[in-house]
Design a binder for these strands. Sequence first.
DNA 1: CCAAAAGTGTTCCTCCTACACCCATGC
DNA 2: GCATGGGTGTAGGAGGAACACTTTTGG
Lengths: 296, 296
Amino acid sequence: MSENHSAEQMFLKEYDVNQYVRPSVSVDMLLFTVTEEESENYRKRSDKSLKILLIKRKEHPFLGQWALPGGFVSAHESIDEAAIRVLEKETGLRDVYLEQLYTWGDIGRDPRTRVISCSYMALINSDLYPLQSGEGTEDAKWFHVSDHWTQKKTTVTENGFMIEKWVELRLGSGADAATATVKTTKIVEHGHSKVVQEIEEAHNLAFDHAKMIVYALERLRNKVDYTDIAFHLLPEYFTLSDLQQVFEVILGKELLAAAFRRKVADKVLETNHIRRNAGHRPSKLYRYNPTWDDEL
Amino acid sequence: MSENHSAEQMFLKEYDVNQYVRPSVSVDMLLFTVTEEESENYRKRSDKSLKILLIKRKEHPFLGQWALPGGFVSAHESIDEAAIRVLEKETGLRDVYLEQLYTWGDIGRDPRTRVISCSYMALINSDLYPLQSGEGTEDAKWFHVSDHWTQKKTTVTENGFMIEKWVELRLGSGADAATATVKTTKIVEHGHSKVVQEIEEAHNLAFDHAKMIVYALERLRNKVDYTDIAFHLLPEYFTLSDLQQVFEVILGKELLAAAFRRKVADKVLETNHIRRNAGHRPSKLYRYNPTWDDEL
DNA sequence: CCAAAAGTGTTCCTCCTACACCCATGC
DNA sequence: GCATGGGTGTAGGAGGAACACTTTTGG
């Protein structure tokens, strides 16, 4: 064992770190928050909107287009640490919900050179909004996000079939807008299935970031029901209607209040606080019950 | 626009690809299959076992220990292509189910140099087993895998609480064995939560591969109910008991046959084939119904 | 005959859906 | 008063869990 150990030391010394061609590795951050839109009626509830942070590119390639904030992973930090660093640089925030999503490694995804990008999703409490941008990011803006499918096509082939789905992504922030269409193809042949995703068209959206955003929205939808992600998008104290609106904004559909209240009952704790002056019956404030899921 | 375009061309020419220190990027493959164990009784059903392919390291570091098959991502291939290449080299197989899992980027995870590893899970039909190993891999073996928690601890702190869970991983193949304990810590403070995973001890298991295996098993368990992954581990024709055994092996618990049959009823298609000579009532063979989930 | 697996029927229980309805407020 | 959201009750249906039971084989 000690013999092995010294041999290992020698080996490590002589190991040539340059024997492989190495790609650059970056992180791209999907920062989401939920904001209130103004209401026209003193009684009516303000609608909520799902937002994502985009940055106007001041360099080639994709000069002037909108892109996800990101940065390269340096030698002295883990990928997680790089994600935290980029997050803090863009928003000044630490200690927000952070989750690795997917690593994008197609050869041509960055026209400069080979860049492999690891995407992270961060969820920001809406009470921290509006956020101060970090230095050098005066072109960072929060965009309203939504995606919806525009076309689905099923084709029967000799040995199986094929399903194609087109998803339209819309991003808007005042006068600025960006759109993209992402096509997902699932091919089933001889019982084996394969999924391919392509960007059909993108306006004002850089790199393959349209794919990343569609992927993140899908993940949000999948996880909102059985995890605590919705609470990371709300302040500490919230009403059940607030919570319901977050669910609705993520799921892209309306929910019935009665059923919703029962479904989330054990995920929240009632508090003594009450929200008044809303033009209707006051509502109790709740907070997250961190012990509802005692696993992990 | 055309002005921008020519400026972009110039920029790309002058872009220095070496301005950032770049890590090596590799893929690590989690190859799973399900095999039949011999039965002692002519009537009794043979049990099934979940297996993972490991390779005995013939180089430093971790010489002589077991590791996941893997390889570096080269400049002329995407990460997916690298995964497919490594898979084919190790097993000779193409067109199997492949899924990217997670990207591991801690600084010290490879003692040689900075290596970021993207892990992929591949599921192999059990009728392709036993597999011929590719060239140079006579030390590749299928190990029986199982994991189970041994300890859970919840501690209340000033501003929140902490949950710790220890998971024991056991790998065995004839006389060869490897084990590891992975500790997962979830810290909740001020409503913000963070999860950290560490390897507490590992015997005969190289790098951080214990974490990868635990992660993959978790993913398998999570997805088996609502996706088609179980079918990728079975031959084209199978009995409902076969399918149930695959579920049981992945979930690590026994299921009631009556409920199971009803739950999977719309995921399978009945065929005319029947399996006989089993020492008991013959059973219908089924195959996967690829249209049960018409989404995506 | 019998052990074992294949396969079905039934009951109970839980959870989700939907809709109806009452409550409390600001203007 | 009244529009609006807050909040509860209830009936119906879908689906899972548990268990009893019948069917069909090889030896």
